[in-house]
Nucleic acid binder design. Structure first.
Lengths: 192, 192, 192, 192
DNA sequence: GATGAATGAGACTTCATTCAT
DNA sequence: AATGAATGAAGTCTCATTCAT
């Protein structure tokens, strides 16, 4: 699973052979099928772990802040785009390939969709909290959340393939700033 | 090439066998290698064609507008996120897989990087034109352009995997609106 | 046929594709099968031509000498091992491969055997003439002829694969000298 | 490897398919690539083994003789041309094809050249020992050695393709006798 | 005579999976 | 738990040969 992450990051899912996965995990190839029924099962487990890792990172980011809506939204963005100490370039590259496998394989798609749905609605909740706390219209919250998640996924792709073309300080800090701009431009509502 | 697009859209690059590619193109498998040296060469040709298609679409969108900076930026977004009559879901799905192949294969990466670099700098130019025409600061133009391209790529991914989770009217119209909001929030500069 | 010779010299028979053979002959691939039924037929024609070329060379070498038995034997050796103006390294290399094809393919084997049989008996005749003209025993003539032909074939192989290991002036002049030595060591017979 | 020897002896290298090689070795085709990276690697291993086999045969022939120079030279010839109990017609036929592959394939050529170089210099050493032990001139030793090796290689070719044309008792015994004749015709040197 | 696209069989090779030890 | 040999299906690619033009 850790082996798959490593190998997949540079060769993709199909390119990750059982032998390579095993070697990357410090095992022998024969043993892999003792722990996992099939190669697909390893992928499924990996997807689940990656999703959970990000969720955990968000939770741990929340510990350190007192919890204003703005802070929580920033923590979410930071957790998803972190390039800090717990950043993992392999995970980002692997995630790109997982995005493709979600198109091809029903079981991966299911987990992937569940994760993205939860991610989008989580983002939407946080955006709504900010908007409401500032007495702004929540009319656009769905679109703001969708844009936020799309920007995150797109940033993964660009980060993995054309890192040199991105402005320094891209990713988390900038998306936070941009989102603040977008939120600030939402109109205040009466009685907010 | 058209065959690869079709098959790749649902099975990815590795999953697109020569036989399937040939069948999708109405050919027999042996003939494929008469026209293309290797399977990779088909992919390379396809990537080039997809990139060019989007570029052409932008140019043709430009024909219909009189050409204010705002209109040109909207045309760019529309060309990249079009879900209208010339939309091509297969191309979007194939593009996801190409994003992965760009990580694995040096020759694909080269074309992909060139395309993305050109796409980012094109976007930046358009953003700058809008900012300057409105007397606004161009300080953030690089980041705005990067965010724009990231949002486009992310929208492809979400559109291909979780279309039901996106707000209706997502994609082009919304990103246009959002970008307008971002631009409007850039400060005016003296003497602009 | 000339095309096959050239290509075969560096790639062998199986490695010589119709396209390569055609190109080497200045033709297009489709035309080859207009002149030859199959690829094997080209090989058969080539073998026949190579055999005949050597025979012709022997005949033309004979023209220049007045025809003592010794001179005729020397001419034979020279014709078979010539490294002079009419030497053809490609033909030597191709002949190596033909020696292999004679093992695999019945039709090639037939021509090859006929050629070698004729070559051996020709050599034997010449050796006998020398022996008899000098009043020596002809008891060993078969073995001398066989050794001569073997040395010729072996010289082809060594010349094609390890030319640097051979003493300068190997091939014709040396084999002539050696053979003279062998003949000289045959005992004189009474009444010869 | 043993499978390749067997199949190659009658079909050549290109004609020896992996499936046939496997079957000849009593294996299934998939397993072949578990032990050998490529088909070429099998060939390389076979070439090395054949070379070594002849070397071993020479060493074992040396055991039985007390070791005069003449005896050692005879043992060398016998080891290389043996048609006795340890003769191997398949190995001879395969060696013919290897001679061709040495022209086509750089890695085979390397091993082949090393083997032939060593074979020629080994022969030269033995010839020199005989010449010196008999007080004869060593001037021609290089050419004698080259001729000896050429005769050996040529005898393989003739033995594999036109065995019926060779005098009975050809090969080892005869070449030994011939070489003795040649050596005997070398002049004695003063002080020898 | 000449062309080059088209065909289809078959080659090497890869690899997930199984299984005896 | 662990190993690594073994299997067999499937994939890419090559190429002699055919054929319409």
């Amino acid at each position: 699973m850790g082996g798959l992450l490593e190998v997949m990051a540079e060769r993709g899912y199909e390119g990750a052979t059982i032998v390579a996965i095993a070697k990357a995990a410090g095992l022998r190839s024969g043993l892999v099928h003792y722990h996992f029924e099939t190669k697909r099962a390893i992928l499924v487990a990996l997807v689940e772990r990656l999703v959970e890792t990000v969720d955990q990172r968000f939770k741990s980011r929340l510990q350190g802040v007192d919890g204003t809506p703005r802070e929580r939204l920033d923590a979410w963005i930071d957790a998803h785009l972190a390039l800090g100490p717990d950043a993992d370039p392999d995970a980002v590259a692997a995630w790109i390939f997982i995005g493709g496998e979600a198109i091809r394989q029903a079981d991966v798609r299911q987990i992937y969709q569940r994760a993205m749905t939860s991610r989008i609605s989580g983002a939407q909740q946080l955006v709504r909290d900010v908007l409401m706390s500032e007495g702004r219209s929540t009319q656009k919250m769905a679109e703001l959340a969708a844009l936020l998640v799309a920007a995150v996924e797109g940033a993964y792709q660009l980060g993995a393939t054309v890192p040199d073309e991105l402005p320094s300080g891209f990713a988390a800090p900038y998306v936070q700033r941009v989102l603040r701009g977008l939120i600030d431009s939402e109109p205040r509502v009466k009685g907010g």
